[in-house]
Nucleic acid binder design. Structure first.
Lengths: 257, 257
DNA sequence: CGTTCATTTGAACATGCTCAATTCCTGTGG
DNA sequence: CCACAGGAATTGAGCATGTTCAAATGAACG
């Protein structure tokens, strides 16, 4: 606890929980002390599976991966997180964390003790909204990812992965067409549910097609529209297809034929 | 709105939001009116993708599936829900639903308007805890499912699916070894990310092995332990394997060799 | 430099998908 | 009550995607 140093910075302006922080605290009923920040380094764990849950965190800079352990000791990466993202939401269920969060690079987080969070929720509607919104978004992201996992082939999944990263960086004010991957190929493969070799082949192929340029962990997107096209790759379209309008609308469909 | 009939029943005792209801309301600061209930039938939609979000729901009886649409119009089932489960949590993100919820059989739900929920959260710690807990659980369930989707082969995924259902039914006071599937084979296949034919073959195989008995949509689990064993099926164990202790512990591993 | 880890590449193989045909249900109308 | 139609489920056979295994190359760090 004491290792967290109280401070306030410009990074906080983008924070999803900024309503809790001191500037805002003046013009609302919220009466919460300033958050405390801490720096972590690559491979450090913010928390591990099983640890007691007593705070949520907001990532201020850097990046993190979250992972679960299967019964057989396999690691499954469940997500990558970037500045502004809420961390530790898994802990509400049991009062203990079910995931492990490891930093991919030097990063800083903002810690909000659960007791403070709860008090803030009681007092501030905007805090309630922000938290529910954040959790709902995490839930929706997971479900979208599931859709991808089941409906897409390797090249679609990979294109989707790159485009998602591009979007995330753009929404954080960074370049959408040139960025560094903070995670290894093994991490990407694990996250996407494919072999490392397949990830490598996807990179090679996209580069051969002049859609992206790869330099170690640096990615340049050369041709956005063709990368988008990868998502609609013909092959996987018919998989598990369920017609939307199962009854009474066949005439429309066949009419447009 | 008016179609929801206010009432209170014994089903509410198992409800995760029961703290909001009238009995409890007396002995706390919560001042919320009784919830309203409504009956739906098979194939009815509770809400659809894009509809305005103005309430969450608790399933009181029956079952539901949630689904997303891919860009190409494919449906991807993201979950099945049973009595006591919270529905509509996807709506907090954008104030509109991103999923579609369809009933698999005649069911009833309890509706909690968002405005009421918010007021209750302001007043009651237990409401805050229950909601955060419910959302956290949904998040964790999603992540566990993802782990399964990526690390398991078809027979493991299917065994896991059956065992999960068994657990859910048991925790709701129903039989864990004999139950009816309220969803079609197509739905199961879509959910698990495999072809209908594969689902069918899994059922056939498990029956041939005398692990389960299948009668249309009725499932009897004959041999629980062998069904559990399916989860540890040798083949898929090495897939995407990441050793847990990457550095400094190799001696232990090789010593046990 | 030499060791170790990360990444790439190639070739064979296996799991699960596709396609096609059949059987089994359910509900409907004669 | 039976015949029939449409959907749901099952089964078989060939094939494709992506995995596994093996080896080589490249980068990083002491």
């Amino acid at each position: 606890m004491s290792q967290y140093v109280a401070q306030q910075s410009s990074l906080c302006q983008k924070c999803s929980m900024s309503a809790m922080c001191i500037e805002k605290a003046c013009d609302s009923k919220v009466n919460v002390k300033v958050r405390s920040h801490k720096i972590f380094h690559k491979s450090d764990a913010l928390f591990r599976d099983g640890e007691r849950f007593d705070a949520i965190y907001i990532l201020r800079s850097g990046s993190v991966k979250s992972s679960l352990l299967s019964g057989t000791g396999q690691e499954q990466i469940t997500g990558f997180y970037f500045p502004g993202d809420l961390l530790g939401l898994d802990g509400f269920e049991k009062g203990a964390h079910s995931q492990t969060l490891k930093f991919l690079e030097t990063s800083s987080v903002c810690r909000i003790a659960f007791s403070e969070l709860d008090a803030a929720m009681a007092n501030s509607q905007s805090i309630r909204y922000n938290l529910l919104q954040g959790m709902s978004q995490a839930l929706n992201d997971d479900d979208k990812f599931l859709l991808n996992a089941h409906c897409m082939n390797a090249s679609q999944k990979f294109a989707s992965f790159i485009l998602n990263l591009s979007n995330k960086f753009e929404s954080r004010g960074l370049s959408s067409h040139n960025f560094d991957l903070s995670m290894s190929r093994v991490d990407i493969a694990n996250y996407l549910g494919m072999a490392v070799e397949t990830v490598s082949r996807q990179l090679t192929q996209l580069q051969k097609d002049h859609i992206i340029e790869v330099n170690k962990r640096n990615i340049s997107i050369v041709d956005f529209s063709r990368l988008q096209d990868c998502l609609n790759d013909e092959k996987a379209m018919s998989k598990h297809f369920i017609p939307l309008m199962s009854k009474g609308f066949t005439s429309q469909v066949s009419a447009s034929h």
